[in-house]
Design a protein around this nucleic acid. Structure first.
Lengths: 133, 133, 133, 133
DNA sequence: GTGGTCTAGACCACT
DNA sequence: GTGGTCTAGACCACC
């Protein structure tokens, strides 16, 4: 069900990557309230990480109301779930692009080089999202 | 001279905020090599933080070649020079674009939307001029 | 694993001594990328110093690209790479040779004696291999 | 009498530069016990530095027995002065060359490049000492 | 006054 | 357990 790839090289916390992947899956794929998520132990084994890390991610999703825990049974897609509003998505994109552009400019790259780096990255993005063109 | 405001709400470390503020100021404002920065203690008082935190930030700026320390005198704007190798700059750009693209894709933006956001940001940014022609 | 001895008598800062020891160890001993270093707390206990001092030293090694930090796991030997630009390396060599030559000349050694001392030292030094061919 | 050039760019403390210059001058030039040194104020004006710095340097020379202070009159070359023994000179040269070689090798320079840098420095050494050839 | 180093101890995020 | 950040306060060298 969940296709998650963990990048251990970057600085992105593993638990955050899980949270974002689940959040994205729930927003785009055909999941219905009540559908089961992989168990903490199963996902941990699949990703070769510590179960605590998965539990941490699930706890955050529960707190945000996207999934529910049923003790002894597992985690399930929540009845009334909220995802990012369009406004929130815009806000987050703005913050991310600001951070990126500033860093790249301070590294003394020209705008065209910066655009090129982004193009290369987007052209073979592994996330399976929409592709350019 | 330096107008720095610290945001205590976000999770950005204080010392990082100082670093970014100074980098930004040096890139955009009319600072010349030899100009003095506020002393560690003075800036700490102004920002109501511990002098160690300011020292930490200044140390990072020294390492990146942007400012110089003269013991007993203070910190001063350094001659502009390129400290990092082209490989290292590429590596850092790659890391930054990876972080940005991942965040944007997880927010479910299409590649063209992402490029558009970057273009808008770059068109407003200060050029700053290359260190070497 | 790391045999570090701290000299409390001289005026060399403790954290610098750690930095130099680790650099030396990485250059001469058979350490491979991915190998773990002693944890900050462990090394601090071993050397009977404050963990902050070890952290300071490790942070400098991270900046120079010799080791990497993985939060929650520890510090590890990084892939060997060249972080600084050729200009920066030249600048640092110039600064070092300036300091050395000044000291030697003030000690009233003749140029040939100074060259001889350097030759003797270099003939005993480990080669270490270039990062790039 | 004293030809001193202060380098404010490097990390060498000014007072140390004065100490070494005087020490060297006393060892090599034709100074006799009882000869007067420039007054603290005069030397400070000549070198464009703070009188405290000169006083600091003179104090160290007094402590080491090379010069004497006569209150209200000034500083004078001491009656029975000691300079560095040959053994001490050797020891200091060894320490300096060790520091230099290590730094240069860690910067990934080849031995020939290191020797070349030293040669260039020695060939136009401004200290007026013996010249190569 | 300035910067540089070190200690002690706290709290946080991550695994 | 790990590293990351911050505070408080000390002592030093230098100007």
């Amino acid at each position: 069900m969940l296709e998650i790839r963990i990048a251990t090289d970057g600085n992105a916390p593993i638990y955050r990557q899980i949270v974002e992947h689940v959040r994205w899956a729930l927003a785009t794929d055909g999941h219905r309230p009540g559908d089961a998520l992989p168990s903490v132990r199963a996902l941990a084994e699949q990703l070769l990480i510590n179960p605590n890390t998965v539990a941490h991610a699930y706890a955050e999703l529960v707190r945000d109301g996207l999934i529910e825990a049923r003790t002894g049974k597992g985690y399930f897609v929540a009845q009334r779930r909220r995802v990012y509003s369009d406004e929130e998505r815009r806000r987050r994109l703005e913050a991310a692009v600001e951070t990126f552009a500033r860093e790249a400019l301070l590294l003394d790259f020209a705008p065209d080089e910066i655009r090129g780096a982004l193009d290369r990255k987007l052209s073979h993005a592994p996330q399976g999202g929409r592709v350019h063109g």
